[in-house]
Amino acid sequence: MNKLMSSLSSLPLRRGLIGAALAGVLVLAGGLAPASAQEHGGTKPHRESWSFAGPFGKYDRAQLQRGFQVFKEVCSSCHSAHLLAFRNLAQPGGPQFSEEQAKVVAEGYQIQDGPNDAGDMFDRPGRLSDHWPSPFPNEQAARASNGGAYPPDFSTLAKARTYEVGFPGFLIDIFTQYQEQGPDYIHALLNGYVDPPEGVTVPEGAHYNAYFPGHAIKMPQPISADQVTYTDGTPQTVDQYSRDVTAFMMWVAEPHLEARKRIGFQVMIFLIIFAGLLYFTKKKVWKAVHDH
């Protein structure tokens, strides 16, 4: 590598040529860029500060519990979350309700089971092993009840949404480890119900949203201030609700995030020390060759 680098720097002419070529490529492509996410989609969401971002990010338990409350009382009347099981509510790294609390939540829902010995399906109270029941029996029924739009499933939604970061932001994100575009977008969307600008008409049955691609969203503003009663004194604003439910959605989409970052740190420390030892070992081993 050193040899390569030294051979590179020995030739200023070549450097100039490469620089010119690179600059040419960038100017050509950047200058002529006609299309952008902004033109096709909504306004770029603002980057929020999430407790689960960064190398030591962790979910805020209280926030996840509040977010679950918002999901349960508001969102879940239209949105499913079919990969979320009641037992998940009590597992480490999540909202960490007690197992008793999770059981109570489960028993509050009727789950279809069967067939019984007579061949009939029947409803019974939910158990920890059951998954979150969907509000509609199928996609067609969901569309029929929601003006033709299908309320997306929450299971992986927070990882399924993003916005374009552009150059050089997408390179900087590698180093800052910023991966929270999905939560940014969802938070922005929930706060993006504003009056349409002058001259913009919204189609019948749709609503104007500043952050939704195309701006015409079928979902009406889903939540308003004081709609959900928090017991811990957290402000009951739309902004707070949307932050909480977004954090909850991120956990539903990535339930092992905390374990991932924790193990990641251990692995990093290990690898760096190991690389250091290997470096000195390599130097020792090669010393004989280099000395002569």
Partner: peptide, 24 residues
Amino acid sequence: IKDSLGMVVFLIFFAWFLFYIPNY
């Protein structure tokens, strides 16, 4: 020994993506 060092340094790079930005 040289390859091992190369591999472990590469694994550090890999682990950065794997553990911190796995969906990047």
